[in-house]
């Protein structure tokens, strides 16, 4: 019996808008260890594909849980925007955030911080409520279910043997600052995907009676075939989002509407 055919990103609704963004993409063969550092580029497809931001997460064990160090950069009109900080999470399936501290900062064209633009956000999950200090203001917001951090999911879903809880959860959106209720996450497929590689031009020979002729053709070299787990996330204030995690536990892509995070090949530098 033939093995299941590997499909291309163009064949999947969540990825077909971003098929071109996987050029050059490659996942490492070895699974992640307990400590790791990975960078994802954020692509947008309102027109042709364009990288608009990047996110680097460094994970390290901390007690029974993990600590994610966050670095995010986004060019913007007249400068750039930055988020730096950390999130500490529990050791449960979706890495429930316990504490976090993030600094939001606008940078000028020279990448130096602009005055009066830094904002520090500190949060803690305690007794079913998020205790938040943003700038000078402290507030408490009750959450009526589990809490999941969007950036924490980048780590949690990379666990090789993951059993998803079925409960709806509250989502701490990227960069914190907002809580979105009524989110669901479920495994919706385990396809095999043929992706990445390099586009190169080759000469193709065509043999004729009088001899051979050659023409240039574009081919993809070094494309990779991997089995994936695909998780679908639905909930308020978020477009349907699909998380593509390889069977070996590498998060390749997070696709949602016009945006897709795509893992940068190992060794890529921000």
């Amino acid at each position: 019996m033939d093995p299941p055919r590997a499909s291309s990103p163009l064949e999947h609704f969540s990825l077909r808008h971003f098929a071109a963004c996987f050029d050059g993409c490659r996942l490492p063969a070895a699974p992640l260890g307990p400590s790791w550092q990975v960078t994802w580029d954020l692509w947008e497809r309102s027109g042709g594909p364009a990288k608009i931001a990047w996110l680097q997460l460094a994970c390290a064990p901390q007690g029974a849980g993990r600590r994610l160090t966050v670095q995010f950069r986004k060019p913007a009109a007249g400068g750039a925007l930055a988020i730096d900080g950390w999130l500490e999470s529990a050791a449960d399936a979706l890495w429930t955030p316990q504490r976090w501290e993030l600094t939001h900062q606008a940078l000028g064209p020279d990448q130096r911080p602009l005055p009066e633009t830094a904002l520090q956000e500190r949060g803690e999950l305690r007794a079913g409520a998020v205790h938040w200090t943003v700038g000078q203001r402290a507030q408490v917001q009750a959450v009526s279910g589990p809490l999941v951090a969007e950036w924490g999911l980048f780590g949690a879903l990379q666990q090789p043997a993951l059993t998803l809880p079925s409960d709806e959860f509250w989502l701490l959106s990227r960069g914190g600052r907002t809580l979105k209720p009524g989110h669901r996450l479920r495994l919706v497929g385990q396809p095999s995907l043929h992706f990445g590689g390099r586009r190169v031009w080759r000469e193709e020979e065509r043999k004729l009676a009088a001899g051979s002729v050659y023409r240039p053709v574009e081919v993809v070299e070094d494309a990779q075939t991997e089995a994936f787990r695909v998780y679908e996330q639905l909930g308020s204030g978020t477009l349907p989002t699909c998380w593509w995690v390889s069977a070996s536990g590498h998060l390749l892509a997070v696709a949602s509407g016009l945006l897709c995070w795509v893992r940068r090949p190992t060794g890529g530098t921000p």
Binding site: A76, A106, L239, L259
Partner: peptide
């Protein structure tokens, strides 16, 4: 003008 904004509201 303040630094911020971009073409896609979602981000």
């Amino acid at each position: 003008p303040l630094v911020g904004g971009g073409r896609q509201g979602c981000h």
